[in-house]
Design a protein around this nucleic acid. Structure first.
Lengths: 204, 204
DNA sequence: AAATATTTTAATCATTTGATTAAAAATTGC
DNA sequence: GCAATTTTTAATCAAATGATTAAAATATTT
């Protein structure tokens, strides 16, 4: 066997390809990505991509599942936790996701775009992973505000957290704010969202 | 001249192609769309697409500009209006956009995705169209809450309005709510967002 | 060091896809 | 009704793209 491991900090060929695929796929989406882009980004011969991963589709599968896990992995357990309050859940999710998204700002648009292009494909995966409607969070919201559909507050929370990352290219074009300031703003939101969410819950 | 107009309710060939292009482009994005898809959707010969519009790119240009206008056209004038209050602006934008997006739910993901893929292309267009940072809305927000960056409230407003439409495929997969109920929810938000926004503004 | 197994490369294939062309069909002006 | 113009069609092109192959290079085992 001549298996090369990632020696001396350098990545193995396989890992170089995967990392390049993460970059290119998340930035441009599946359809706009050419396998040659990935090969170039990874600095490897195009044929190696198929040697290690069989096909563009298979490589994509790996990347999208990773990113989906990153976007959806945390939410289920938190929302179904019977022991925490609404406020604790919101703060937990807010802090966790903003940190994750600062490190991976392209994920939401990427994942949501691919779901749009292929809803059937992800249906099973997502449904098993997260059952919001029967969660503790849902019941807590319904008890606190029986007059408003709990889904509204789910939308609100996710909108406050995720939208800035989706809308960033637009807002950055409109306002011209530098990306360092954008990061500062996002960090501020970690705490602010909790307060805002409470205010919305109590609004009459 | 043998110019065919859309007689007896039927569309002209040119308009049939444009309408098909709207459908396919907004649903799948530029890269994932094949000119053959559009031709098939329009029920016309593929060559007619190039006969009327020269190229896929040119046809796309028309569609994306239309949709961008729909997404961004209203916001500038409202935000720069010196005569209206914060609350009136929020209500106006909220009602207008939710109505528009119920009729065109694919627009946000489409437009934001294409901006992501080609930020330079839209830079000029967007900057001239909307200068939020010097708007009356911005100043009003800064006066009302000097302790919080007004951009946060821009994000909040747009997030509350737009996110449900972007996240709908995801939420629909997660919750399994039927799309009629989704429309009901979106209509409810028209009024609710105004209240929520006020609550966030006053939150301490 | 020789034999074997693995990895990498350059060349090439087959399909897809945006676009063109030349001829046919339909429409219009006279 | 006939000539001119416009629209539509079928066939085809050229470039792009995902994938394969056979040979070369490299690493591993004995």
């Amino acid at each position: 066997m001549a298996k090369k491991k990632d020696i001396t900090g350098d990545l193995s060929t396989e890992e170089k390809i995967k990392e390049a695929a993460r970059q290119v796929f998340t930035k441009k989406g599946y359809a706009a990505t050419r396998t040659r882009d990935i090969a170039e980004e990874a600095g490897i011969n195009l044929a190696l991509l198929n040697y290690y991963f069989r096909s563009k589709e298979k490589l994509f599968e790996i990347v999208i599942m990773e990113k989906m896990q990153l976007l959806l992995g945390k939410i289920g357990p938190v929302l179904t936790d019977e022991k925490t309050t609404i406020e604790e859940k919101v703060e937990d999710i807010s802090e966790h996701y903003i940190s994750t998204l600062i490190a991976n700002p392209d994920i939401p648009l990427f994942v949501l775009g691919e779901i749009r292009n292929n809803p059937e494909k992800f249906a099973n995966l997502i449904m098993t992973k997260t059952k919001i409607v029967n969660s503790a969070f849902f019941k807590q919201l319904a008890a606190r505000r029986p007059d408003i559909d709990p889904l509204h507050f789910i939308f609100n929370m996710l909108g406050l957290i995720i939208f800035p990352f989706i809308g960033k290219p637009l807002i950055q074009l409109i306002t011209g704010i530098p990306s360092e300031r954008a990061v500062v703003l996002m960090n501020e939101r970690k705490k602010l969202i909790k307060t805002w969410f409470q205010a919305m819950l109590d609004a009459k």
